[in-house]
Design a protein around this nucleic acid. Structure first.
Lengths: 214, 214
DNA sequence: TAGATTGTTAATCGATTAACAATC
DNA sequence: TAGATTGTTAATCGATTAACAATC
Protein backbone atom coordinates (compact mmCIF):
# COMPACT_ATOMS: atom_id res chain seq x y z
CA UNK A 1 0.00 0.00 0.00
CA UNK A 2 1.74 3.14 -1.25
CA UNK A 3 1.06 6.37 0.57
CA UNK A 4 0.67 9.49 -1.50
CA UNK A 5 0.07 12.79 0.19
CA UNK A 6 -2.58 15.25 -0.90
CA UNK A 7 0.16 17.81 -1.58
CA UNK A 8 1.79 15.43 -4.07
CA UNK A 9 -1.54 15.04 -5.89
CA UNK A 10 -2.06 18.80 -6.06
CA UNK A 11 1.49 19.24 -7.34
CA UNK A 12 0.84 16.64 -10.04
CA UNK A 13 -2.16 18.64 -11.26
CA UNK A 14 0.11 21.69 -11.26
CA UNK A 15 2.78 20.01 -13.36
CA UNK A 16 0.14 18.80 -15.78
CA UNK A 17 -1.31 22.27 -16.15
CA UNK A 18 2.12 23.71 -16.90
CA UNK A 19 3.09 20.91 -19.27
CA UNK A 20 -0.04 21.54 -21.32
CA UNK A 21 1.00 25.16 -21.69
CA UNK A 22 4.48 24.16 -22.82
CA UNK A 23 3.02 21.66 -25.26
CA UNK A 24 0.90 24.38 -26.83
CA UNK A 25 4.05 26.43 -27.22
CA UNK A 26 5.54 23.55 -29.15
CA UNK A 27 8.16 22.55 -26.58
CA UNK A 28 8.87 18.85 -27.04
CA UNK A 29 11.59 18.16 -24.52
CA UNK A 30 12.09 19.54 -21.02
CA UNK A 31 13.91 18.93 -17.77
CA UNK A 32 12.67 18.78 -14.19
CA UNK A 33 14.44 22.13 -13.81
CA UNK A 34 12.24 23.64 -16.54
CA UNK A 35 9.12 22.45 -14.72
CA UNK A 36 10.56 23.66 -11.42
CA UNK A 37 11.09 27.18 -12.73
CA UNK A 38 7.69 27.29 -14.39
CA UNK A 39 5.67 26.31 -11.35
CA UNK A 40 7.87 27.37 -8.45
CA UNK A 41 8.50 23.94 -6.98
CA UNK A 42 12.07 22.55 -6.59
CA UNK A 43 13.28 20.21 -9.34
CA UNK A 44 14.07 17.37 -6.95
CA UNK A 45 10.55 17.64 -5.60
CA UNK A 46 9.17 17.27 -9.12
CA UNK A 47 11.31 14.18 -9.69
CA UNK A 48 10.38 12.73 -6.31
CA UNK A 49 6.67 13.16 -6.96
CA UNK A 50 6.96 11.40 -10.30
CA UNK A 51 9.14 8.63 -8.81
CA UNK A 52 6.20 7.42 -6.72
CA UNK A 53 4.56 6.26 -9.91
CA UNK A 54 7.39 5.07 -12.14
CA UNK A 55 10.13 6.29 -14.43
CA UNK A 56 8.99 8.77 -17.04
CA UNK A 57 12.16 10.48 -18.22
CA UNK A 58 15.50 9.64 -19.78
CA UNK A 59 18.64 10.16 -17.71
CA UNK A 60 20.91 12.76 -19.17
CA UNK A 61 18.15 13.93 -21.50
CA UNK A 62 14.93 14.94 -19.73
CA UNK A 63 11.25 14.35 -20.34
CA UNK A 64 9.32 14.22 -23.56
CA UNK A 65 6.50 16.72 -23.10
CA UNK A 66 3.72 14.74 -24.78
CA UNK A 67 4.70 11.50 -23.13
CA UNK A 68 4.93 13.06 -19.67
CA UNK A 69 1.51 14.68 -20.15
CA UNK A 70 0.15 11.31 -21.06
CA UNK A 71 1.79 9.65 -18.04
CA UNK A 72 0.58 12.20 -15.51
CA UNK A 73 -2.87 12.15 -17.12
CA UNK A 74 -3.01 8.41 -16.54
CA UNK A 75 -1.86 8.79 -12.93
CA UNK A 76 -4.55 11.38 -12.28
CA UNK A 77 -7.15 9.39 -14.17
CA UNK A 78 -7.79 12.16 -16.67
CA UNK A 79 -6.69 10.19 -19.72
CA UNK A 80 -10.37 9.34 -20.06
CA UNK A 81 -13.47 11.51 -20.09
CA UNK A 82 -15.63 11.98 -17.00
CA UNK A 83 -19.31 12.71 -17.04
CA UNK A 84 -20.37 15.00 -14.22
CA UNK A 85 -23.65 16.49 -13.02
CA UNK A 86 -24.20 19.96 -11.64
CA UNK A 87 -26.76 20.86 -9.00
CA UNK A 88 -27.54 24.55 -8.61
CA UNK A 89 -28.46 26.80 -11.52
CA UNK A 90 -27.52 30.11 -9.90
CA UNK A 91 -24.74 32.47 -10.91
CA UNK A 92 -21.92 30.13 -9.92
CA UNK A 93 -23.68 27.27 -11.71
CA UNK A 94 -24.03 29.40 -14.82
CA UNK A 95 -20.34 30.18 -14.77
CA UNK A 96 -19.49 26.49 -14.44
CA UNK A 97 -21.75 25.35 -17.27
CA UNK A 98 -20.03 27.69 -19.69
CA UNK A 99 -16.58 27.08 -18.21
CA UNK A 100 -14.81 25.81 -21.37
CA UNK A 101 -11.85 24.47 -19.44
CA UNK A 102 -13.88 21.66 -17.90
CA UNK A 103 -14.81 20.29 -21.30
CA UNK A 104 -11.30 20.87 -22.64
CA UNK A 105 -9.93 18.81 -19.76
CA UNK A 106 -12.39 15.96 -20.25
CA UNK A 107 -15.00 16.89 -17.66
CA UNK A 108 -18.34 16.86 -19.36
CA UNK A 109 -21.36 18.34 -17.56
CA UNK A 110 -24.19 16.10 -18.76
CA UNK A 111 -27.05 17.71 -16.81
CA UNK A 112 -27.96 20.64 -14.58
CA UNK A 113 -30.45 20.28 -11.74
CA UNK A 114 -32.14 22.72 -9.42
CA UNK A 115 -34.62 22.33 -6.58
CA UNK A 116 -36.34 25.59 -7.51
CA UNK A 117 -39.36 24.52 -9.58
CA UNK A 118 -39.63 27.93 -11.25
CA UNK A 119 -36.25 27.30 -12.89
CA UNK A 120 -37.09 23.86 -14.29
CA UNK A 121 -37.19 23.83 -18.09
CA UNK A 122 -35.29 27.09 -18.43
CA UNK A 123 -31.89 26.99 -20.07
CA UNK A 124 -28.48 27.77 -18.68
CA UNK A 125 -25.72 27.86 -21.25
CA UNK A 126 -26.93 25.17 -23.65
CA UNK A 127 -28.39 22.99 -20.90
CA UNK A 128 -32.01 22.67 -19.79
CA UNK A 129 -32.50 22.82 -16.04
CA UNK A 130 -33.97 19.60 -14.70
CA UNK A 131 -35.70 18.70 -11.42
CA UNK A 132 -33.80 16.77 -8.75
CA UNK A 133 -36.01 13.74 -9.35
CA UNK A 134 -34.20 13.14 -12.61
CA UNK A 135 -30.82 12.69 -10.94
CA UNK A 136 -31.04 8.87 -10.59
CA UNK A 137 -31.88 8.40 -14.27
CA UNK A 138 -29.14 10.69 -15.54
CA UNK A 139 -26.48 9.35 -13.19
CA UNK A 140 -27.18 5.81 -14.24
CA UNK A 141 -27.55 6.63 -17.95
CA UNK A 142 -24.26 8.53 -18.17
CA UNK A 143 -22.35 6.53 -15.53
CA UNK A 144 -21.73 9.67 -13.53
CA UNK A 145 -19.22 9.38 -10.68
CA UNK A 146 -18.73 13.08 -9.86
CA UNK A 147 -21.24 15.67 -8.71
CA UNK A 148 -20.66 19.40 -8.55
CA UNK A 149 -22.83 21.43 -6.24
CA UNK A 150 -23.25 25.19 -6.35
CA UNK A 151 -26.20 25.56 -3.99
CA UNK A 152 -26.96 27.70 -0.92
CA UNK A 153 -25.46 26.60 2.37
CA UNK A 154 -28.82 25.39 3.64
CA UNK A 155 -29.32 22.98 0.74
CA UNK A 156 -25.80 21.59 0.62
CA UNK A 157 -26.08 18.62 2.98
CA UNK A 158 -29.35 17.48 1.40
CA UNK A 159 -27.83 17.51 -2.05
CA UNK A 160 -24.78 15.67 -0.76
CA UNK A 161 -27.08 12.98 0.63
CA UNK A 162 -28.88 12.77 -2.69
CA UNK A 163 -25.53 12.38 -4.48
CA UNK A 164 -24.48 9.60 -2.13
CA UNK A 165 -27.80 7.75 -2.51
CA UNK A 166 -27.16 7.79 -6.25
CA UNK A 167 -23.66 6.34 -5.95
CA UNK A 168 -21.77 9.54 -6.70
CA UNK A 169 -18.24 9.01 -5.38
CA UNK A 170 -16.69 12.46 -5.61
CA UNK A 171 -18.16 15.87 -4.85
CA UNK A 172 -16.87 19.29 -5.81
CA UNK A 173 -18.58 21.55 -3.30
CA UNK A 174 -18.98 25.29 -3.87
CA UNK A 175 -21.15 25.79 -0.77
CA UNK A 176 -19.16 27.22 2.13
CA UNK A 177 -19.91 24.40 4.54
CA UNK A 178 -18.67 21.00 5.72
CA UNK A 179 -20.45 18.07 4.23
CA UNK A 180 -20.92 15.01 6.37
CA UNK A 181 -20.16 12.09 4.08
CA UNK A 182 -18.91 8.51 4.45
CA UNK A 183 -15.16 8.11 4.20
CA UNK A 184 -15.41 6.49 0.79
CA UNK A 185 -16.75 9.74 -0.74
CA UNK A 186 -14.16 12.31 -1.81
CA UNK A 187 -15.16 15.90 -1.20
CA UNK A 188 -13.24 18.89 -2.47
CA UNK A 189 -14.37 22.26 -1.21
CA UNK A 190 -13.97 25.21 -3.58
CA UNK A 191 -13.88 28.06 -1.12
CA UNK A 192 -12.92 31.42 -2.64
CA UNK A 193 -13.25 33.21 0.67
CA UNK A 194 -10.68 30.92 2.29
CA UNK A 195 -8.26 31.86 -0.49
CA UNK A 196 -8.85 35.56 0.12
CA UNK A 197 -8.40 35.06 3.86
CA UNK A 198 -5.12 33.33 3.21
CA UNK A 199 -4.03 36.43 1.29
CA UNK A 200 -5.13 38.81 4.04
CA UNK A 201 -3.33 36.64 6.61
CA UNK A 202 -0.07 37.03 4.75
CA UNK A 203 -0.62 40.72 4.27
CA UNK A 204 -1.50 41.24 7.92
CA UNK A 205 1.37 39.21 9.31
CA UNK A 206 4.06 39.81 6.73
CA UNK A 207 6.36 41.64 9.12
CA UNK A 208 6.19 39.03 11.84
CA UNK A 209 6.22 35.79 10.00
CA UNK A 210 8.09 33.62 7.63
CA UNK A 211 6.11 31.54 5.21
CA UNK A 212 6.37 28.39 3.32
CA UNK A 213 4.29 28.30 0.20
CA UNK A 214 2.83 25.23 -1.38
CA UNK B 1 10.62 35.14 13.23
CA UNK B 2 7.79 32.65 13.68
CA UNK B 3 7.17 30.15 10.92
CA UNK B 4 3.61 29.34 10.05
CA UNK B 5 2.87 26.80 7.37
CA UNK B 6 0.36 27.35 4.61
CA UNK B 7 -1.60 24.33 5.88
CA UNK B 8 -2.00 25.99 9.27
CA UNK B 9 -3.39 29.12 7.60
CA UNK B 10 -5.84 27.11 5.54
CA UNK B 11 -6.93 25.23 8.66
CA UNK B 12 -7.50 28.53 10.46
CA UNK B 13 -9.84 29.65 7.67
CA UNK B 14 -11.59 26.31 8.07
CA UNK B 15 -12.08 26.71 11.82
CA UNK B 16 -13.37 30.22 11.29
CA UNK B 17 -15.88 29.04 8.72
CA UNK B 18 -17.16 26.35 11.07
CA UNK B 19 -17.25 28.65 14.09
CA UNK B 20 -19.43 31.11 12.19
CA UNK B 21 -21.87 28.29 11.50
CA UNK B 22 -21.94 27.33 15.17
CA UNK B 23 -22.41 30.96 16.15
CA UNK B 24 -25.45 31.22 13.90
CA UNK B 25 -26.84 28.14 15.62
CA UNK B 26 -26.49 29.99 18.91
CA UNK B 27 -23.70 27.84 20.34
CA UNK B 28 -21.75 30.01 22.78
CA UNK B 29 -19.20 27.60 24.20
CA UNK B 30 -17.27 24.82 22.52
CA UNK B 31 -14.22 22.60 22.89
CA UNK B 32 -11.39 21.82 20.51
CA UNK B 33 -13.05 18.41 20.23
CA UNK B 34 -16.25 20.03 18.92
CA UNK B 35 -14.28 21.87 16.26
CA UNK B 36 -12.35 18.71 15.48
CA UNK B 37 -15.50 16.72 14.84
CA UNK B 38 -17.07 19.49 12.80
CA UNK B 39 -14.20 19.98 10.39
CA UNK B 40 -12.44 16.60 10.45
CA UNK B 41 -9.15 17.74 11.91
CA UNK B 42 -7.79 16.27 15.18
CA UNK B 43 -8.44 18.29 18.35
CA UNK B 44 -4.77 18.55 19.28
CA UNK B 45 -4.07 19.92 15.82
CA UNK B 46 -6.69 22.61 16.35
CA UNK B 47 -5.10 23.56 19.69
CA UNK B 48 -1.62 23.52 18.22
CA UNK B 49 -2.60 25.79 15.36
CA UNK B 50 -4.12 28.28 17.78
CA UNK B 51 -1.15 28.04 20.15
CA UNK B 52 1.09 29.65 17.52
CA UNK B 53 -0.79 32.88 18.07
CA UNK B 54 -1.66 32.94 21.75
CA UNK B 55 -4.07 31.53 24.32
CA UNK B 56 -7.69 31.81 23.34
CA UNK B 57 -9.50 29.32 25.56
CA UNK B 58 -10.01 28.53 29.21
CA UNK B 59 -8.52 25.32 30.60
CA UNK B 60 -11.14 22.93 31.82
CA UNK B 61 -13.84 24.92 30.04
CA UNK B 62 -13.26 25.44 26.33
CA UNK B 63 -13.59 28.36 23.96
CA UNK B 64 -16.17 31.11 23.81
CA UNK B 65 -17.50 31.01 20.26
CA UNK B 66 -17.76 34.74 19.66
CA UNK B 67 -14.42 35.49 21.24
CA UNK B 68 -12.64 32.75 19.28
CA UNK B 69 -14.21 34.01 16.05
CA UNK B 70 -12.93 37.45 16.89
CA UNK B 71 -9.44 36.12 17.72
CA UNK B 72 -9.08 34.05 14.54
CA UNK B 73 -10.49 36.94 12.49
CA UNK B 74 -7.75 39.15 13.87
CA UNK B 75 -5.08 36.55 13.12
CA UNK B 76 -6.31 36.25 9.54
CA UNK B 77 -6.71 40.00 9.20
CA UNK B 78 -10.43 39.77 8.45
CA UNK B 79 -11.56 41.74 11.48
CA UNK B 80 -11.52 44.70 9.12
CA UNK B 81 -13.06 45.24 5.69
CA UNK B 82 -11.03 44.85 2.51
CA UNK B 83 -11.73 46.65 -0.73
CA UNK B 84 -10.97 44.54 -3.77
CA UNK B 85 -11.13 45.05 -7.50
CA UNK B 86 -12.20 42.53 -10.10
CA UNK B 87 -10.83 42.31 -13.63
CA UNK B 88 -12.83 40.24 -16.09
CA UNK B 89 -16.55 40.69 -16.65
CA UNK B 90 -17.26 37.25 -18.09
CA UNK B 91 -19.35 34.47 -16.56
CA UNK B 92 -16.97 33.81 -13.68
CA UNK B 93 -16.71 37.53 -13.02
CA UNK B 94 -20.51 37.83 -12.99
CA UNK B 95 -20.74 35.02 -10.45
CA UNK B 96 -18.17 36.70 -8.22
CA UNK B 97 -19.83 40.13 -8.31
CA UNK B 98 -23.07 38.68 -7.02
CA UNK B 99 -21.33 36.27 -4.64
CA UNK B 100 -22.92 37.44 -1.36
CA UNK B 101 -20.42 35.59 0.78
CA UNK B 102 -17.60 37.95 -0.17
CA UNK B 103 -19.48 40.96 1.13
CA UNK B 104 -20.69 39.05 4.18
CA UNK B 105 -17.06 38.22 5.01
CA UNK B 106 -15.86 41.78 4.58
CA UNK B 107 -14.53 41.60 1.02
CA UNK B 108 -16.06 44.45 -0.90
CA UNK B 109 -15.70 44.53 -4.68
CA UNK B 110 -15.44 48.25 -5.41
CA UNK B 111 -15.05 48.10 -9.19
CA UNK B 112 -15.15 45.75 -12.15
CA UNK B 113 -12.84 46.20 -15.12
CA UNK B 114 -12.59 44.62 -18.54
CA UNK B 115 -10.26 45.08 -21.47
CA UNK B 116 -13.07 44.48 -23.96
CA UNK B 117 -14.20 47.96 -25.00
CA UNK B 118 -17.63 46.70 -26.08
CA UNK B 119 -18.34 45.78 -22.45
CA UNK B 120 -17.38 49.15 -20.95
CA UNK B 121 -20.38 50.96 -19.46
CA UNK B 122 -22.54 47.85 -19.30
CA UNK B 123 -23.58 46.57 -15.90
CA UNK B 124 -22.78 43.35 -14.15
CA UNK B 125 -24.72 42.79 -10.93
CA UNK B 126 -25.01 46.36 -9.68
CA UNK B 127 -21.59 47.40 -10.99
CA UNK B 128 -20.72 49.31 -14.15
CA UNK B 129 -17.88 47.80 -16.13
CA UNK B 130 -14.92 50.16 -16.36
CA UNK B 131 -11.89 50.29 -18.67
CA UNK B 132 -8.49 49.13 -17.40
CA UNK B 133 -7.23 52.73 -17.51
CA UNK B 134 -9.32 53.50 -14.46
CA UNK B 135 -7.54 50.95 -12.28
CA UNK B 136 -4.93 53.38 -10.87
CA UNK B 137 -7.58 55.89 -9.78
CA UNK B 138 -9.84 53.31 -8.15
CA UNK B 139 -7.02 51.45 -6.42
CA UNK B 140 -5.70 54.63 -4.92
CA UNK B 141 -9.14 56.05 -4.04
CA UNK B 142 -10.30 52.90 -2.23
CA UNK B 143 -6.90 51.80 -0.90
CA UNK B 144 -7.23 48.47 -2.68
CA UNK B 145 -4.68 45.83 -1.75
CA UNK B 146 -6.26 42.78 -3.39
CA UNK B 147 -7.10 42.13 -7.03
CA UNK B 148 -9.22 39.30 -8.34
CA UNK B 149 -8.78 38.26 -11.94
CA UNK B 150 -11.20 36.17 -13.94
CA UNK B 151 -9.75 36.64 -17.41
CA UNK B 152 -8.69 34.34 -20.26
CA UNK B 153 -5.33 32.62 -19.93
CA UNK B 154 -3.78 34.88 -22.56
CA UNK B 155 -4.63 38.07 -20.65
CA UNK B 156 -3.66 36.85 -17.19
CA UNK B 157 0.01 37.86 -17.02
CA UNK B 158 -0.72 41.32 -18.43
CA UNK B 159 -3.38 41.95 -15.80
CA UNK B 160 -1.05 40.67 -13.10
CA UNK B 161 1.58 43.17 -14.26
CA UNK B 162 -1.02 45.93 -14.18
CA UNK B 163 -1.99 44.93 -10.64
CA UNK B 164 1.62 45.00 -9.51
CA UNK B 165 2.28 48.40 -11.12
CA UNK B 166 -0.64 49.71 -9.11
CA UNK B 167 0.67 48.34 -5.81
CA UNK B 168 -1.77 45.48 -5.47
CA UNK B 169 -0.20 43.04 -3.01
CA UNK B 170 -2.43 39.97 -3.26
CA UNK B 171 -3.99 38.32 -6.29
CA UNK B 172 -6.79 35.78 -6.44
CA UNK B 173 -6.30 34.24 -9.86
CA UNK B 174 -9.07 32.33 -11.65
CA UNK B 175 -7.07 31.92 -14.87
CA UNK B 176 -5.55 28.45 -15.16
CA UNK B 177 -1.96 29.62 -15.47
CA UNK B 178 1.11 30.52 -13.41
CA UNK B 179 1.65 34.19 -12.86
CA UNK B 180 5.20 35.48 -12.72
CA UNK B 181 5.22 37.91 -9.83
CA UNK B 182 7.78 39.27 -7.37
CA UNK B 183 8.07 37.33 -4.11
CA UNK B 184 6.35 40.09 -2.17
CA UNK B 185 3.08 39.51 -4.08
CA UNK B 186 0.79 36.77 -2.77
CA UNK B 187 -0.99 34.80 -5.45
CA UNK B 188 -3.72 32.27 -4.79
CA UNK B 189 -4.86 30.23 -7.74
CA UNK B 190 -8.49 29.18 -7.79
CA UNK B 191 -8.33 26.17 -10.06
CA UNK B 192 -11.53 24.11 -10.21
CA UNK B 193 -10.05 21.66 -12.66
CA UNK B 194 -7.23 20.81 -10.25
CA UNK B 195 -9.86 19.98 -7.63
CA UNK B 196 -11.69 17.69 -10.05
CA UNK B 197 -8.41 16.04 -11.01
CA UNK B 198 -7.67 15.42 -7.37
CA UNK B 199 -11.04 13.63 -7.14
CA UNK B 200 -10.39 11.53 -10.23
CA UNK B 201 -6.94 10.65 -8.88
CA UNK B 202 -8.45 9.25 -5.73
CA UNK B 203 -11.14 7.43 -7.66
CA UNK B 204 -8.63 5.97 -10.10
CA UNK B 205 -6.10 4.87 -7.50
CA UNK B 206 -8.34 4.00 -4.58
CA UNK B 207 -7.48 0.32 -4.63
CA UNK B 208 -3.72 0.83 -4.71
CA UNK B 209 -3.19 3.73 -2.42
CA UNK B 210 -3.60 5.07 1.04
CA UNK B 211 -4.32 8.76 1.43
CA UNK B 212 -3.84 11.49 3.87
CA UNK B 213 -6.39 14.25 3.55
CA UNK B 214 -5.79 17.86 4.39
C1' DT C 1 -12.64 18.16 45.13
C1' DA C 2 -13.14 15.55 40.73
C1' DG C 3 -13.76 16.04 36.01
C1' DA C 4 -12.81 18.44 32.01
C1' DT C 5 -10.18 20.70 28.68
C1' DT C 6 -6.60 23.78 27.49
C1' DG C 7 -1.73 24.88 26.27
C1' DT C 8 2.80 22.92 25.85
C1' DT C 9 6.52 19.79 25.75
C1' DA C 10 8.42 15.72 23.96
C1' DA C 11 8.21 11.73 20.58
C1' DT C 12 7.07 10.19 16.22
C1' DC C 13 6.30 10.30 11.77
C1' DG C 14 6.52 11.91 7.12
C1' DA C 15 7.87 15.13 3.74
C1' DT C 16 11.42 17.84 1.82
C1' DT C 17 16.05 18.49 0.68
C1' DA C 18 20.67 17.11 -0.41
C1' DA C 19 23.70 14.18 -2.61
C1' DC C 20 25.02 11.01 -5.88
C1' DA C 21 25.04 6.85 -8.63
C1' DA C 22 23.04 5.52 -12.97
C1' DT C 23 22.91 6.39 -17.62
C1' DC C 24 21.81 8.78 -21.85
C1' DT D 1 34.31 10.63 -23.58
C1' DA D 2 32.40 14.70 -21.01
C1' DG D 3 28.30 16.92 -19.78
C1' DA D 4 23.71 16.64 -18.49
C1' DT D 5 19.87 15.03 -16.09
C1' DT D 6 17.23 11.41 -14.18
C1' DG D 7 15.89 8.26 -10.35
C1' DT D 8 17.01 6.93 -5.72
C1' DT D 9 19.08 6.69 -1.33
C1' DA D 10 20.27 8.96 2.80
C1' DA D 11 20.05 13.17 5.87
C1' DT D 12 17.48 16.84 7.49
C1' DC D 13 13.84 19.29 8.69
C1' DG D 14 9.21 20.26 10.03
C1' DA D 15 4.62 18.90 10.98
C1' DT D 16 1.67 15.85 13.36
C1' DT D 17 0.64 13.13 17.19
C1' DA D 18 0.89 11.70 21.92
C1' DA D 19 1.14 12.74 26.53
C1' DC D 20 0.60 15.48 30.36
C1' DA D 21 1.03 19.41 33.43
C1' DA D 22 -1.67 23.50 34.25
C1' DT D 23 -5.88 25.14 35.61
C1' DC D 24 -10.73 26.17 35.43
Amino acid sequence: MIKISETTVIRLTTYLKYLRQLEEKGIELLSSKDIAEGVGIPAHNVRKDLAFFGEFGTRGVGYNTKSLISSISKILGVNKKWNVVLVGAGKVGAALVTYDIFKKRGFNIVAVFDSDTTKIGKTIGDMTIMPLEEIPGIVSKYDVKIGIMAVPLTHAQGIANLFIENNIEGILNFAPTFLKVPKSIYVQNADFTALLESITFKHTNREMLNFKFI
